[in-house]
């Protein structure tokens, strides 16, 4: 019998029927949670549809991928996004080079070494870092880089502010993964006379690698889409700049911001097209991260 609670079988001797009120409430709740899920899907579909609809045609042009916006003003169509993609990728890469080792070793500390007050303090500060508004991270690097050291607003400064936002993401995901590695494997390794650091680096980390890579990719996706710190630290430039230490460097978010609010159709098109480019980049990283997680999870 597959009789559900809301539609009891007709011939059920001895089984009293549910009161109408209870049944109505149950059905109502079922409808409500379905509606809630539908409501949650509306913005996702709507956003993807809007960005795709307004932005796709520029992406089909090969110059979009190979050119910068040099010598192109808002009223003129043409040019590409190459300079902004380069800036976004370069800043994210430098950010990852700094943030990933720091975050992975912090996670190793929390799972494999940390005890007592220091471990609790580290864990607490990672929580704070998770909640830090990105604009505050930008202000901090501004206060350090520009006001204190008197340096210019260059690509590297933007990268540094992104480090603060990437570290907590990678620490938390790595920590989760390390905790999933069964203790039996550590014991097996110790029992072979393998020292602790080799046990961690050669047994524990490889076992957790898939999950760590996923965390790094999700962290990268997060920092690539960040705009707020770049408004303070990474002014837009319309030409290609490959030097992280000198001059303004374009990024996808600042390119979108640059073209926002302008009345000219070419600028509006560029705004949507660069938003689509950013979404594609971020979603690709995101999906790739999930795929890695799917196929190399810790086998229990």
């Amino acid at each position: 019998m597959t009789a559900t609670v809301s539609s009891p079988p007709l011939h059920a001797p001895g089984v009293p029927e549910l009161s109408r009120r209870r049944r109505t409430r149950d059905v109502l709740a079922t409808v409500m949670v379905h509606v809630a899920f539908a409501i949650a899907m509306v913005p996702l579909v709507w956003i993807l549809y809007s960005v795709l609809g307004h932005g796709w045609h520029l992406l089909l042009d090969s110059t979009w991928w190979t050119n910068s916006q040099r010598n192109i003003n808002p009223e003129r169509a043409g040019g590409g996004v190459y300079h902004a993609i380069f800036g976004t990728l370069a800043q994210a890469l430098i950010c990852a080079v700094i943030a990933v080792p720091l975050a992975v070793f912090t996670a190793i500390y929390l799972v494999e070494y940390g005890t007592g007050r220091l471990a609790r303090a580290v864990s607490f500060t990672v929580d704070i870092l998770t909640g830090i508004p990105s604009i505050v991270a930008g202000l901090f690097i501004y206060a350090l880089w520009v006001t204190t050291f008197g340096l210019q607003r260059v690509g590297l400064a933007a990268s540094l502010s992104l480090v603060l936002l990437m570290v907590p993401v990678v620490v938390r995901s790595t920590e989760e993964m390390l905790k999933l590695v069964p203790n039996e494997l550590r014991e097996a390794s110790y029992a072979l006379g393998v020292p602790k650091w080799k046990t961690i680096s050669r047994i524990v980390l490889p076992t957790a690698l898939g999950g760590i890579v996923t965390g790094v990719m999700l962290g990268l996706a997060r920092v690539m889409g960040e705009t707020a710190p770049l408004l303070i630290l990474g002014p837009y430039a319309s030409s290609i700049n490959t030097d992280l230490f000198n001059g303004n460097m374009a990024t996808l978010p600042t390119m979108i911001r640059e073209n926002f609010g302008l009345p000219d159709q070419p600028a509006i098109d560029r705004m949507w097209a660069s938003a689509l480019t950013l979404i594609v980049l971020v979603l690709l990283l995101n999906i790739a991260g999930r795929v890695v997680a799917r196929f190399s999870g810790v086998k229990k």
Partner: peptide, 11 residues
């Protein structure tokens, strides 16, 4: 959560 906030702004 993966959609960048600037895209939310545009939308």
């Amino acid at each position: 959560a993966a959609v960048p906030s600037i895209v939310y702004g545009l939308w």
